[in-house]
Write a protein that binds this DNA or RNA. Structure first.
Lengths: 202, 202
DNA sequence: TGACGGTAACTTACCCTGGGGTCACTTTAC
DNA sequence: GTAAAGTGACCCCAGGGTAAGTTACCGTCA
């Protein structure tokens, strides 16, 4: 009989349930930060209880790491591909933005996991997040260097600052985007293109 | 006698101690976020214990509000003054940055309190922070409107996006600055000026 | 000027809730 | 019948918050 009993299996394979939990975890961690997110809330979103979450991911850190790796791998991969294509320095920012928007159109909170400052300062999470950030910063640094060099500027500290500001720009664009679910990746890219053209002539 | 006993008054007037605690609180809240910050740690920084903190500020929210108001009032005041002076749209960003850097040269974490996403979603803190953000956003919106208008662009949604990106830029500049305590407000302003000139010709 | 009382500045030791984490158990699919 | 999917009920501790007590400063009065 299919009476809705609370206890017992619901017939969903582990792999699928895990994917659901990673999606829910990404949203919750992205929204509230590692410190502010609650495991029971993440389980509740999926219609499941905490022990199952722990059975599958071991710990809060385990779940966070799963979310982080999914987001980080997709992101670094997308950016690496775009950067490898090359092009004029002034066109790279828009191309990278387009790649990010496309990659995370249905997963907008993912970006925030890499930049969450509420994770414990030491441990696996901090190390993994720092590693992803390091890789992305390297791309940002490369892009900033190409851009500055093309204008005859070369102060390395300025370039560092620009690279960091760039990640902040991506950050705020994504925050803005999160609040406007109707705007898809294509529209978002077009908007950025229009703005860069208008403000900088890029 | 002045033997160092643990218990009993240390002779510091309430006003002075409160100021110390607000400074320590601002740093700790700014660093770890509302959710991640610990009251006992804030008290410990000042060489005092938790109950005193509670006697003076009532609750974690009370302390946070005190820190937030100090930061928010100084910030909105400084920006309002700068914006009131007026000038070419392209020069305003640098002028505002200069005001912010000068105001917070010895208090670099303060800015983050206004943008902390780990505060409870409802209640006094959320309301106060939202109010400060609203006021700052209004200035950003005004500046963005002037800038876009001077270039013949007027899409209001684009302008909103630019305003939000602007706050993100300030955010990341301050984060970068926090990691470089040797760079003072003047040097920071000069750096931003150089970069804007180089990248955008502003 | 010294004793003294009142109050402000502090602490120790405690309570209590929320949330991470676990154990033993139940049910359904195959 | 067995293994996988899933739960209720529990432990434990960090951290917010409090009660009650201790000490030093300071004004006042003889």
């Amino acid at each position: 009989m299919t009476e809705s009993r609370a206890v017992g299996t619901k017939g969903m394979p582990r792999e699928e349930r895990e994917a659901q939990l990673v999606v829910a975890g990404t949203e919750e961690f992205g929204r509230a930060g590692y410190a502010g997110a609650s495991m029971v809330e993440i389980a509740r979103r999926v219609g499941v209880t905490k022990p199952l979450l722990y059975q599958y991911f071991g710990s809060k850190d385990g779940l966070y790491l799963a979310c982080l790796h999914r987001a980080g791998d997709r992101l670094t991969e997308g950016v690496a591909t775009t950067m490898a294509e090359g092009g004029e320095p002034e066109r790279m920012p828009l191309k990278v933005l387009s790649a990010i928007f496309t990659t995370f159109d249905y997963d907008r909170y993912a970006w925030r996991l890499l930049r969450d400052e509420t994770v414990p300062a030491t441990g696996d999470i901090a190390a993994a997040a720092a590693d992803y950030r390091r890789r992305l910063d390297a791309f940002a640094l490369l892009g900033a260097t190409q851009l500055m060099t093309s204008r005859g500027l070369a102060d390395p500290v300025d370039i560092e600052a620009i690279a960091q500001v760039w990640t902040g720009v991506v950050d705020s664009l994504i925050s803005w985007w999160i609040d406007r679910p109707d705007e898809d990746a294509v529209a978002m890219t077009a908007r950025c293109s229009r703005i860069m053209e208008g403000l900088f002539g890029w």
